[in-house]
């Protein structure tokens, strides 16, 4: 464990990479371990990068409460920042406001399509209901989504399962090209 002192004043400090823009750029480029086509910035989980003297503090938010990728994201962030000279880097968690798939950037949506995944439509409950005055309606019918197959562009697609290979995806199949694909759930 390396915890650099905040009062560290080694020679050559002037050359130390201290710019917040640079730290932001490095943090923003770290990718999701489960969806490596998406950067944390594109996924919308990167909530802030702050530089205070020697310390870089990156704030991220979980997509789902049990997202198993959080630890790896934090680890990767610290590692990349260290590699770029930000020796004292810490990662903080933010739970509020809760993450929404609406936060995936346009660039991220294009990257998902490029990788054969279908990007989310606007989230139906975003932001989360703020009080009990507004009960969430039951949805017993199949979730209707106007999707196109990321492989062939056909809109003749069928849902296989609302739960895909990761917490954030549903599983679909294209009726035309017959390819299965993951759809990033609206959340």
């Amino acid at each position: 464990m390396i915890m650099a002192s905040a009062t560290h004043t080694a020679p050559g400090q002037a050359e130390r990479p201290r710019s917040v823009q640079r730290a932001r750029r490095i943090a923003a480029a770290v990718t999701d371990p489960e969806l490596p086509m998406l950067t944390l910035q594109d996924l919308g989980v990167l909530r802030g990068v702050e530089v205070d003297r020697e310390r870089v503090t990156v704030t991220i938010t979980p997509t789902y409460s049990g997202c198993p990728a959080m630890a790896t994201m934090a680890d990767d962030l610290v590692h990349r920042l260290r590699g770029a000279g930000f020796i004292d880097a810490v990662v903080k968690i933010s739970l509020d406001p809760p993450w929404s798939s609406d936060w995936i950037t346009e660039h991220g949506r294009a990257a998902l399509r490029q990788a054969g995944m279908s990007p989310p439509s606007p989230a139906p409950r975003s932001p989360a209901p703020t009080s009990a005055r507004d009960p969430i309606p039951l949805r017993l019918g199949p979730t209707r989504r106007a999707l196109t197959c990321p492989q062939c562009g056909s809109n003749a697609v069928e849902s296989v399962s609302e739960f895909g290979s990761t917490a954030c995806t549903a599983h679909y199949r294209c009726s035309v090209c017959r390819e299965p694909f993951d759809h990033f759930k609206e959340f």
Partner: peptide, 9 residues
């Protein structure tokens, strides 16, 4: 979350 490993992700 600091760790000491230094291999690239």
């Amino acid at each position: 979350p600091s760790t000491e490993h230094d291999q690239p992700a």
